[in-house]
Computed example of a mutant assay.
Amino acid sequence: MIFGKAGFGGAVADFETAVAARDAKRSGKAFVRLQETFGQAKEAELLDAGPRLAAVLEHAPPGPRAVVAVLVGACVERGADAERCAPGVLAGLRTALEAAVAFAEAWEATGGGAFPAPDGGEPGDEAVERAGFEATVGWWTLRQWEMAAVAMLNHPAVRGRAGDRGALLHLLTTVERASGAEFTYLAHALRVLDDEPLVVLHRTSGTGYALRLSGIGDNFQLHTLLADALIGGGHVAGHAPSPQEVAVCRDTPGQVDTVGSFDLTAPDGGSIGNEGSPSGIPVVDGVRLLVLDEPSYRRSWPAGRFLPGMRGDVILERALEPEETRRWFAQVSPARELTA
């Protein structure tokens, strides 16, 4: 039994003290208590614990560090201040990504072979021997850092202050290429755009619109919210999503079956997949430009948010004037003919 008060709040205090003292044995015991008592934590304890645990992440032992980051993420999901928690979590994510890159390089340099998949347990002896302890832990705990980081990035204020998202995404892409693994939630969260201007051209009607999007995790979500703004708003003809379909794409939990309203098309005539993200929409004259074509076949999917903790929105700012619309259409390739 270590010193301190009972419950989750006491475990947090004990973990802080043990980490500050660099006492591995005591921090290990406090770490176990953190996990054992989290489920019974009161709201006030969670609000207080998130920033405190985030502040000591950098100095926490490498093994427990990622799990503590997940606890921080869980505190944020229960209401703890994401802006105060995010710096420690995102710094830890960067360290883990850098270590995972080093692991991939060491693995290749020592003979390569099947890349080990982390199973949530302890790293295997071979991995540690070939890449070293810190690099191996970085790779082995990356799924946990993904969970913690996405919990932070769900918040627009965090995304606005996370100026190194491009660097984190570059590291993540390097790890994915080397390992063959995908960290799709983290990749999408790092690519999310906020307050982003978007020009949309509706080819059938020859009309254009200026919109602004925020917090959109993927193009399925964008598709539904565009259909609501333009078709539901009475600007163009087509299939309008129901209020329930729109709600789950904006901020309501759950999924609702929907039917596609458009083909999303790039200015050069290429297809833009619903599986992608708005960050992949091409930029023309400093603004992302998207063409909406009539659906070439019937598509259906569960409407909702790929990142369910993130609020998304598409705001229609104005319809473009005819001359302005013509100038944009002049930069767009003709519609591709469908072949049987």
Rank of each mutant, 00 (worst) to 15 (best):
G312F: 13
L292F: 15
G39M: 11
G113T: 12
E196H: 10
T252V: 07
S271C: 04
E98G: 15
D293S: 12
E122A: 06
H188P: 00
K25M: 10
D81Q: 06
V192P: 06
L47P: 00
G160W: 05
A96F: 01
V101Q: 02
A91H: 10
H223I: 15
D251Q: 12
R299M: 14
G10R: 01
G234K: 13
R177T: 03
W301L: 12
A13L: 05
I281N: 01
V70F: 00
V283I: 11
P282D: 03
V332Y: 10
D285N: 09
M152V: 13
G286K: 13
A21I: 01
V72F: 04
E182C: 01
P253L: 15
L171D: 09
G234D: 08
V256M: 03
R326S: 11
T252F: 07
R305F: 12
M152N: 12
D119K: 05
P64L: 03
F8S: 09
G28Y: 06
F38A: 11
P64R: 08
G138W: 00
S27Y: 04
S27D: 07
N154Y: 00
I272D: 00
A109Q: 15
H239W: 10
L211H: 07
A181L: 11
I231R: 00
D251L: 02
G160K: 02
A69V: 03
E108N: 12
L34A: 05
F133E: 13
A237F: 00
E126C: 04
E108D: 11
H59S: 13
R130V: 08
I231Q: 00
G121L: 07
A99Q: 11
E294V: 13
V101I: 06
R161L: 10
I231Y: 02
D313K: 08
T136K: 01
D313R: 11
L190D: 03
A131Y: 02
S27F: 01
L307D: 13
L93Q: 15
S279G: 04
A340W: 09
G215T: 01
R177E: 06
S271P: 05
E317N: 12
V246R: 05
R130E: 07
F8C: 06
R161T: 10
P243Y: 10
A114S: 08
L222V: 14
A102C: 14
L230N: 08
V68F: 09
S205D: 09
Q255Y: 01
H235Q: 15
T174D: 03
S300W: 14
E58P: 10
P116R: 13
D268H: 15
R161V: 10
D263C: 07
L225Y: 15
G124Q: 04
P118D: 13
S214N: 02
L34Q: 04
